[in-house]
Design a protein around this nucleic acid. Structure first.
Lengths: 129, 129
DNA sequence: CATTAACTACGAAACTTTTCGTAAGAGTGT
DNA sequence: ACACTCTTACGAAAAGTTTCGTAGTTAATG
């Protein structure tokens, strides 16, 4: 049975994962074009990154076509959880409430978002009982 | 005028900053001892880290005593904001509400914490009007 | 005043991550 | 078959981070 260790993408890897989550399965060319919207980056650099990510099982690829098609191998949720946990322990000393309050304070949540958050809070309280 | 660029501590630097935030001004020895509670780390390694952090202005130091005394040069809040913003854009595509909900979902906020969060939400709504 | 202990400074090795150049294969058109 | 283009593979340079050994300084102690 293959071991399943927590994925810890580096910053660059995360950038690429975001493109794959947003755009779905993509060729190296497509990923590279997206990357280049933000910053200059050579084609083979992107290729190499994807190859490394493939070795690390961060992505899967379909080699049937001449241009391989890459796809994120992990869900965005999972990485969000991993990174959130890490931030929580390293920068917030484990206090989720502090983290949440900072996040709310620093952002401009819409009315709908506020509502959804409140509902979640109510639900947590209900479940608690 | 001195330039003020966003501090981006590395993981190890953040570990040391946490110790300084928690324990206040500390000698290399004290920091190293704290570090060693978690993992083996040579004295000169810690010293070097603090020296590098000093060059980067992540810490200040008092050289009056033979053992220099280091102190975090940035408030924990500031770093929290920087890292939260980064996480928000890189992993949550900018959706603070999603981040907040994940954080609430993954943690067990106490009754008091829930209350504080609700109050903050109410306040945001009030200010909105 | 020599020895030892507690420090700092600093270069450089070891590791990790990112970037890129070059080679080679495969398909297309002449 | 030849040249041209698009693509992958891969080694290795470049850049960034972490760890540590060694040398030198200061202060205290016999």
């Amino acid at each position: 049975m293959a071991k399943k260790l927590t994925p810890r993408p580096t910053d660059s890897e995360l950038e690429i994962l975001r493109i794959l989550w947003e755009n779905g399965a993509s060729t190296v060319k497509a990923v590279n074009e997206k990357l280049n919207e933000k910053k200059e980056s050579g084609y083979t650099t992107t290729l190499k990154m994807l190859q490394i990510m493939y070795e690390k099982n961060l992505v899967v690829r379909d080699e049937n076509e001449r241009s391989h098609v890459y796809k994120a191998a992990i869900k965005q949720d999972e990485i969000q959880k991993v990174l959130l946990d890490k931030l929580l322990t390293t920068a917030f000393s484990g206090s989720a409430a502090n983290l949440v309050m900072q996040a709310l304070g620093n952002s401009q949540p819409s009315k709908e978002e506020l509502k959804k958050i409140k509902e979640l809070l109510n639900q947590i309280e209900r479940d608690r009982k």
